[in-house]
Nucleic acid binder design. Structure first.
Lengths: 148, 148
DNA sequence: ATACAATGGTTGCATACGCAACTAATAAGC
DNA sequence: GCTTATTAGTTGCGTATGCAACCATTGTAT
């Protein structure tokens, strides 16, 4: 087995590690957020993305990108949150095809309650991951990614 | 904002980066594997896990762990692959609750055809990710995770 | 002006998923 | 030995997803 073959296997193993760590974090967040504030991970991700944009001025396509979801799934996700009065659709004045979303006070409040849960779970799960030899190298990196 | 708060935000950003990279790789693999050999990513992951175990001697629970899937999803995944004659269920002799899975020749053949696709896509996508400032730090790490 | 292309979101439909309840087989308690 | 608990895997059911087809609005060309 030559160097090139090794590289392929190392990449594959790296990808398996990434997928495993992702699955662990995702499952833990899903469980805790769902239990404590009734939000799924994607729902939290959307609220979080909106919040980092001052709760305003994100179009459907941007939300789709932020959540790594298809356009159709994004439509339904926004509809679900709108039905719970966490956000509202706002028609775009200059381009009436576009739709902005706005966090409602209820949505902002729920996000403020969800964020500590999210952050605490993330810290706990990452600490656990750093104890596992397979995951540790990757888990440690997450603390060292520079702002960009 | 103190050091502790910074750590929280850095973790959160690291998690977003991890999720983003995972989504990109997963989507690319999904697309290429589906197109070229008619396999989804989880289906490939299962065949790959089986193959690394000599195509034998993995119980349902192990497969569930390898694919990060629930028991029920694992049952249906194995059923799908069994219906396509890629693997077969084998009752465990000593513990008749347990079920082993065995790759069929067809399954082995399909895996051998799928692996180059998988590896090439992974290499391509990771190379692209290394060009993006947001993803580069994490993408580069995947080449450096030691065997364990 | 009118037709035609391109863009932004939404819906019909089929599929995969997780949870909880279930069955079958083994292990433990007395 | 018989009852109870535990473990392994499967099924019913509701929900989230992606794809492709669709509608509405905007831009472009003649």
């Amino acid at each position: 087995m030559g160097i090139a073959d090794d590289a392929v296997e190392i990449r594959a193993r790296g990808w398996r590690t990434l997928a495993a760590l992702h699955g662990i974090i995702d499952a833990a967040l899903e469980k805790d957020l769902s239990k404590e504030v009734g939000l799924s991970v994607v729902e939290y991700t959307l609220l979080d993305a909106l919040n980092r944009q001052d709760g305003w001025h994100m179009r459907m396509a941007q939300l789709a990108r932020a959540t790594a979801l298809s356009p159709s799934a994004t439509t339904r996700l926004v509809t679900r949150l709108e039905d719970r009065n966490l956000l509202s659709r706002v028609l775009c004045a200059d381009d009436r095809r576009g739709i902005y979303t706005e966090l409602t006070p209820i949505g902002q409040d729920l996000y403020q309650r969800a964020k500590p849960i999210h952050d605490a779970t993330l810290e706990r799960v990452l600490a656990q991951a750093e104890e596992q030899p397979e995951l540790a190298p990757l888990a440690r990196i997450l603390h060292q990614i520079p702002a960009s």
